[in-house]
Design a protein around this nucleic acid. Sequence first.
DNA 1: GCCACAATTGAGAATGATTATCAATTTTGC
DNA 2: GCAAAATTGATAATCATTCTCAATTGTGGC
Lengths: 153, 153
Amino acid sequence: MNAAGRFARYLSTNRLKMTRTRRAILEEILAIRGHFTADDLLAHFRRRGRDVAPATLYRTLARLVEAGLVHRIDMAKGQARYEPMFGRHHHDHMICVSCGKIIEFENRTIERIQADVCRRKRFTLVEHTHQLRGHCAQCSQNGTPAARPRGAS
Amino acid sequence: MNAAGRFARYLSTNRLKMTRTRRAILEEILAIRGHFTADDLLAHFRRRGRDVAPATLYRTLARLVEAGLVHRIDMAKGQARYEPMFGRHHHDHMICVSCGKIIEFENRTIERIQADVCRRKRFTLVEHTHQLRGHCAQCSQNGTPAARPRGAS
DNA sequence: GCCACAATTGAGAATGATTATCAATTTTGC
DNA sequence: GCAAAATTGATAATCATTCTCAATTGTGGC
Ligand SMILES: [Mn+2]
Ligand SMILES: [Mn+2]
Ligand SMILES: [Zn+2]
Ligand SMILES: [Zn+2]
């Protein structure tokens, strides 16, 4: 089933309503590729004349995360990033601390060992984050960041 | 060299001063074992009649982290946790989402693969966080959390 | 030990991302 | 179409942490 259908199913299962605002937000996310912040989305809407209140966007993002359609990436500081997870599988992130770029990686061996570690400690894993922070190829080469990270001076 | 000595060296190297407040904070941290929040420390001080301003504590913790004597653990929500790193090596954390308990783990294989991943992507690793969130042995068994997580209702 | 001067402290204000409130509006099942 | 329940948006609130700035303290050189 497609993203809109999955969201509709999630909503009705939870006695929630499919509103035009929620539809618009989901469509906007479908159009964006990669990682984005709540403000990125708000800016997109403003540019298109359709204004969405921050509170509403945050609420809808939370619903989409609950529905498993969007993934939220908590950063050590600054705004969280979100990314669509329609038909994608889990992966982790390398974050360039000079330009802000996010590089994805996935490693089955790490995931397996992680599960082993939990088993040994009798820990029931619900979710995990594995973030590598450092300098991307361009930034370590140039010395000059390719672009400013969000929120940099 | 011991912790106090290392901090003194770090401070003088950076034209900073070893004050009585900084000494008191370092001693307090030496006395605590395990993970703690800024508020935990402030409470300790208040109980002992020695009052330290939050701003000062946060500033000193930042210095201790820079000096490599303390490690800061950013949580998805709520206050950051800190832990002394005097003569300890790197490890990662399992965090119980029902009682707040933090269990440490370290795995050389994961660390090695992680380094490989970075090499392949030409990514210069500076630091990383690997957090596993779920339910600890007690909480998954009891159904009832052993204790409330900080900030829970 | 004293001085000059830079660093530190603490009180309080500010920050900033996100969440809570609540009256007005929209959905939806019937 | 109606009523009940959910949603929206404007706005205030939260809350951990950082900033500001005047008063205080530590330090290196004499
Ligand atoms: Mn991603
Ligand atoms: Mn630890
Ligand atoms: Zn970069
Ligand atoms: Zn637990």
